[in-house]
């Protein structure tokens, strides 16, 4: 892959990861959000794939394949199964409304850009310059996690954070060593599986798909 088309590919795919994160804030239809999440996983896989093709790194290519499969299809499939049980399939009452959270997101993006200045100063590589995008995705994930009250939305926020971290990892270090990366992917997959089981049993035990209904434990 030539230099300029490589960096273009990288920019596009990492931009897509962040746009997907913004779109999850924008949409309230949980089915649509799941599809967006799947798209984000694919974009992440493309980032890894582009880096692998650029550096001719076999291990990274394997990582890219794992990311594509796990984050692009398996995890969204698991989430879709939870979404199907949510009555209405919508995020009905976020703590702050959509326009406000979108404006908040734009502040977070600027914040991420400022916070990452130390990182981007260390290397002039095309990939390193893009690292703030990953940090911004992490922050947007936080926003989703804090402001959304459906159990599914919380899983989605968690995955946004995770995808953001993965993006930073790919961009900065061309992926952590393969064994670590495999462990990380496995962990994420298991966490989602665990959360799926929990969300389902919470739905059957107490009919709660809303965090506001979880008020039993407090001081």
């Amino acid at each position: 892959m030539s230099g300029s088309s490589f960096s273009q590919m990288l920019e596009l795919a990492s931009g897509a990861v962040l746009v997907c994160a913004i779109l999850t804030l924008w949409r309230s239809d949980l089915h649509a959000i799941t599809s967006i999440l799947s798209l984000q996983g694919v974009s992440l896989g493309v980032v890894a794939g582009a880096l692998a093709a650029h550096t001719h790194d076999g291990a990274l290519a394997a990582t890219a394949a794992v990311v594509l499969v796990v984050k692009g299809s398996v995890i969204p499939m698991l989430i879709r199964q939870v979404v199907r049980r949510v009555p209405g399939g919508r995020e009905t009452s976020p703590l702050i409304n959509v326009p406000a959270s979108l404006v908040g997101a734009s502040f977070l993006i600027v914040l991420a850009y400022l916070a990452s200045s130390k990182i981007t100063a260390l290397s002039s590589a095309a990939a390193t310059r893009l690292a703030p995008i990953g940090v911004a995705t992490v922050l947007v994930g936080f926003l989703v996690l804090v402001t959304r009250r459906k159990t599914v939305s919380q899983i989605i926020g968690l995955l946004l954070i995770d995808n953001g971290v993965a993006l930073v990892a790919f961009l900065l270090t061309a992926g952590v060593p393969l064994v670590v990366e495999l462990g990380v992917s496995l962990d994420v997959l298991l966490v989602v599986a665990v959360l799926r089981v929990l969300a389902t049993s919470m739905g059957t035990v107490s009919g709660a798909f809303d965090l506001d209904k979880m008020q039993e434990l407090h001081d």
Binding site: T151, L158, D162, V194, L198, M202, A208, M214, L217
Partner: peptide, 17 residues
């Protein structure tokens, strides 16, 4: 129970973050 499920939900989400 409802309480233990709530606790494990919080546990996984917060710790995973």
């Amino acid at each position: 129970t409802t309480g233990s499920l709530e606790a494990s939900w919080k546990y996984v989400i917060i710790c995973s973050v």
